[in-house]
Design a protein around this nucleic acid. Structure first.
Lengths: 347, 347
DNA sequence: ATGATTTTTTCATACGTATCTATTTTTAGA
DNA sequence: TCTAAAAATAGATACGTATGAAAAAATCAT
C-alpha cells in the first residue's frame, strides 16, 4: 500500500547534509567526519532508511548477488551444500539467487541467460555442466563461474569437487582388504564427471591389486534405476546369462542409490548386508548414518567444498583476474556397518 | 575482463531507432510497429543484448525477485518445496533469493531487513515466524508475505499449511482403529504452529473416542532429541517412575524424528515395528517410502502447498490489495508398513 | 598569523531502463 | 484528395545511488 521508499535524499534533508554525504556514510572507504556520520545515522534511523541495493548495483556494478544453478535437490548433499553456501555468502554480504535447471538439457543455456540478466557477480553451477559457448559468454562478461561437484576439462572453468578418483580407490582397497573377490559397481549418470572419476579410481585400484570388476550396472543416480540395477546384478535367475555367482560386494556411485540397493537386496532378494553382500558408496549424506542403513561410505566434505567455492568466487570477484582453479577435496572413508570390515583396519 | 554491458542505447543506434523504441519492444503492453520490432530484434541478437533487470527494477519498481527465508534444509520437505517453488516462480518470470535464518532467534529481523534491501516483490517465510514489528514493516512497504508451513494469528499474514489439525486427527483415528490403547506422542518444537495443531488434532480425536494420551515426550523436530525421547518413553527401566507398561503405538510429529524413533526402537531397544510398536508420523518425505522405514505417515502435499503459495503471492503482487489468506491443504494418510493396519481399512 | 596541505563537503553526472509528453507518421473516413 | 483520428516514434526525465571534480573547511607547519 503505502510504499515507503525512504531515499538518501530524504535522509540528507533531515540531517541537513547533501545526498552524497549520506551515500558516503554508507559506503565503506569514503571520507566522512564523525559529526556528519552521527547526524546521518540519527536521521536514517528515525526515517528507517536502508540503502537500495539495486540502485547501488546500477552505478557501482556490484549487485551483491551470486547466481546458483542447480539441477535437483533430491539428493540431500545439495540442500546441505546450499545451506552452507548461502550462510557463508550471507556473512560476506552476498546473497544467492536460485535457478533450477530442469532436466531438459537444452535449457541450461536459457537459465544462464536469465542469471546474467540479474547482473550477478558470480555463478555457482552445482551438478551441472556448461556448454563452452556459455562458458565463453560468462567469461567475456567478466563473471566468474565455479562448478560445484562437477569438473569439466577444456573450458578453463574453476571447479571444486571431492577427490573422486582417490575416493573411489579407497573404496576398492577397503573391499579388497576385507577379502572380497567378486566386486560389482553400480554407476551413476554416464555423463557426470563424478561418476567417471569414482569409477576410474575404483577400477584402477582393483587392477593395481590384480583384481578386476566382476559386474557393472548403470544406476544413473536414480533410486529406481539403482534398484533395477541391483536386481539385474544380484538375482541369479536372470535367463539371459549363464549361471553366475552373485557378487559379494558392491560399490554404488552415491549414497541415495545405495539406499535403494540395500532395500532391494534385503527386502526383495532376501540377502543380508553386510553378511551376504558388502555395500559401500559415496557422499555420506546424513541418512547414511541412520541406523537402518548404517552405510559405509566415502565422505564428500561439503563444508570444505563450500569454503573453497566461496574463496575462489571472492578472489575472482575482487581481483578482476579470472585465473581458474581446480580444487579436489580429500575424501575420507567413513566406516560403518554396511560393508565387512577388514581385520585390523584402523584408519 | 572485457565487461560487455550491451545497452539499449547501443541497440538503438545499430537499429537506427531511439532508445525508447528499444525499450518498448522489450516491454509487454507497449506499442511498437512490426518493422521496428524486427529491426530491434535483429540488432539485439547481433549485439547480444538482454535487458538489465536491475535497471528495469529501478524505474518500474519490479525487481522480479522473491525473497525466501528458511531456517534449515535438513528436513527434506523443505528442499523439495524450494525446488517446486523456484521452478514455478521461474515460469512466471520471478526468481528466488535465499536467506538463511540461522537458529539464533534474534537475527530473523536482520535477515528480513537484508531482504528488503534487495527490493523484493514478495517474501516467503518457510518454517519461520515473524515478529509483529517485522510484519508491519513489510506491510507498510507494500510487500506481500506468505508464511509457508507455519501459521500465525493476529498479524494478518497470509499462510499456507497442510491441515495439521485434521491430519493429526487422522493419525489418531488410524491408531485407534487398529486397536491401540496406549498411545504416545513425540512432539516437535513447542513454539511451532505445526507441532501445536498436529497435537491438538491428535488429542482431540483421542478424546472424541474416549481415549487419552498415554505418554508424551518432546523431540523438538531433532533426530537426536527424538531418539532420547523414544528412550525415555519406551525403556521401562527408567528409575524415576514406577513401572509402567510401554506404549504400543506412537505418533511422531514429523518423519525425520520418526526415522530416529524407529531406529532407536529397533536397534537400541530391540522392539519390532509394527509388531511391538506402531509408528506413524507426518510429512511423507521421500525417505518415508524407503523400504527400511516404510513409514505410515500423513502426507503434506508440497506440490499443492507451493501452488497456493505462488498463487497468493501473484495475486497480491498484481493487485495492490494485501488481503491476507489462510490456506490449509488437506493431508491424506499414506498407509505403509510401520503401523498396524486396522481390519478392513481401505481409505 | 599566514600560506600549504589535507580532510570534508557539495555539486553534478552517470548507471540502464521505463514512461510521460510532444511530435511525427500512418490509417481511416468522406 | 484532404482532414480527423489513431498509432508509432523521438525526446526528455526519473528511479536511487556512487563517485569524480570542484569548492569549502579544517589541520598543519613555520
Amino acid at each position: 500500500m503505502s510504499k515507503d521508499k525512504v531515499t538518501s535524499q530524504q535522509v540528507a534533508e533531515l540531517a541537513g547534509v547533501s545526498q552524497s554525504a549520506v551515500s558516503r556514510v554508507y559506503t565503506s572507504g569514503a571520507s566522512a567526519s564523525k559529526k556528519t556520520t552521527a547526524k546521518v545515522h540519527k536521521a536514517a534511523t528515525t526515517l528507517g532508511y536502508r540503502p537500495n541495493i539495486l540502485a547501488r548495483a546500477m552505478v557501482s556494478g556490484k549487485s551483491q548477488i551470486i547466481g546458483l544453478v542447480v539441477a535437483y535437490l533430491e539428493n540431500q548433499f545439495y540442500p546441505d551444500a546450499i545451506e552452507k553456501l548461502s550462510t557463508q555468502l550471507q556473512e560476506k554480504g552476498y546473497h544467492v539467487l536460485i535457478f533450477m535447471a530442469s532436466k531438459t538439457a537444452g535449457n541450461i543455456d536459457s537459465v544462464v541467460d536469465e542469471i546474467l540478466d540479474y547482473q550477478v557477480e558470480g555463478i555457482i553451477a552445482a551438478s551441472v555442466t556448461l556448454s563452452s559457448q556459455l562458458a565463453d559468454r560468462c567469461h567475456s562478461a567478466g563473471i566468474p563461474v565455479v562448478l560445484f561437484n562437477r569438473s569439466q576439462d577444456g573450458e578453463g572453468l574453476s571447479c571444486v569437487t571431492s577427490d573422486n578418483f582417490s575416493g573411489g580407490a579407497k573404496a576398492a582397497r577397503f573391499l579388497l582388504a576385507a577379502g572380497h573377490k567378486k566386486i560389482g559397481y553400480i554407476a551413476g549418470s554416464e555423463g557426470a564427471s563424478t561418476q567417471r572419476d569414482r569409477e576410474f579410481g575404483f577400477t584402477a585400484a582393483l587392477q593395481q591389486a590384480g583384481s578386476t570388476l566382476y559386474a557393472r550396472e548403470e544406476g544413473d543416480f536414480s533410486m529406481e534405476k539403482a534398484s533395477a540395477a541391483a536386481r539385474r546384478m544380484f538375482s541369479n535367475d536372470t535367463p539371459n546369462t549363464a549361471f553366475k555367482e552373485r557378487p559379494d560386494a558392491v560399490f554404488v556411485a552415491n549414497d541415495h542409490m545405495a539406499f535403494a540397493v540395500m532395500d532391494t537386496l534385503r527386502f526383495e532378494l532376501g540377502l543380508r548386508v553386510p553378511e551376504d553382500v558388502s555395500v559401500i558408496s559415496y557422499d555420506d549424506v546424513p541418512a547414511a548414518a541412520w541406523l537402518a542403513y548404517n552405510l559405509t561410505t566415502v565422505r564428500q566434505r561439503a563444508g570444505q567444498m563450500v569454503q573453497e567455492t566461496v574463496r575462489i568466487l571472492m578472489e575472482q570477484i575482487h581481483s578482476n583476474g579470472l585465473q581458474s582453479q581446480q580444487i579436489a577435496i580429500g575424501s575420507p572413508i567413513i566406516v560403518r556397518g554396511s560393508a565387512r570390515i577388514p581385520e585390523g583396519w584402523d584408519s
